[in-house]
Nucleic acid binder design. Sequence first.
DNA 1: TCCATATTTCCAGAAATCATGAATTATAGA
DNA 2: TCTATAATTCATGATTTCTGGAAATATGGA
Lengths: 110, 110
Amino acid sequence: MEKKNALAALSALGHDQRLEIFRHLVKLGPKGAVAGDIAAALSSLPNTLSANLSVLSQAGLVESEREGRHIRYRADMNTMQSLLGFLMEDCCGGDASLCVPAFDALKRCC
Amino acid sequence: MEKKNALAALSALGHDQRLEIFRHLVKLGPKGAVAGDIAAALSSLPNTLSANLSVLSQAGLVESEREGRHIRYRADMNTMQSLLGFLMEDCCGGDASLCVPAFDALKRCC
DNA sequence: TCCATATTTCCAGAAATCATGAATTATAGA
DNA sequence: TCTATAATTCATGATTTCTGGAAATATGGA
């Protein structure tokens, strides 16, 4: 992951509703939720929610897929893993061998 | 970790220079660096750096300790781990047993 | 005590972000 | 084709964040 992508992801998550959206989708896992259901779950106006989903999507934190009139959103765990790797880069003084097993375990986590 | 703490950490890191500072300190590990050296490494004005270190400190991402005229800063890995745990809460549909080993591995990482 | 260094705090204008109403696009079904 | 539903896009005022200069604080050494 490059710095600009990490900045996009971090600032996207550094916002009350967007953090709620992301955690909601993380909990729901691969089945995700359609925009309307997310709006209902978070008691949000549809345009506000749409704008925030757009920010999360551009940051690569969620992916979307149209289902008829609905659009389904899912959390993208690959981006989370890349982000963590970026934040922890060279965290063991350049010898990352100690960190790799942790990242691998996280990859298999969900 | 509570939501307000996660928001503080994420929005703190969602800023170009603060992300650079944090990653710089992560690479340096437990020995950290004094403010002046960080400013030199990042070619930053001292007041700007100080303001950004303050944001990171209030978010719990760095800790500081005075050393004579200098103040030494270190990245706080415990906050990072808590943040990751918060973001991934219930990520396996409520059965977190699959994630715990990954978090433990990360805790031992550095 | 006086001075130099290291860092922080204060302040103000500039820039970016945010929330909301209104309008628009896309799709399904009658 | 017409209508209703789902979601997005647009426009704008309000709020927040950011940057950098100037001043203040803290410490060590002469």
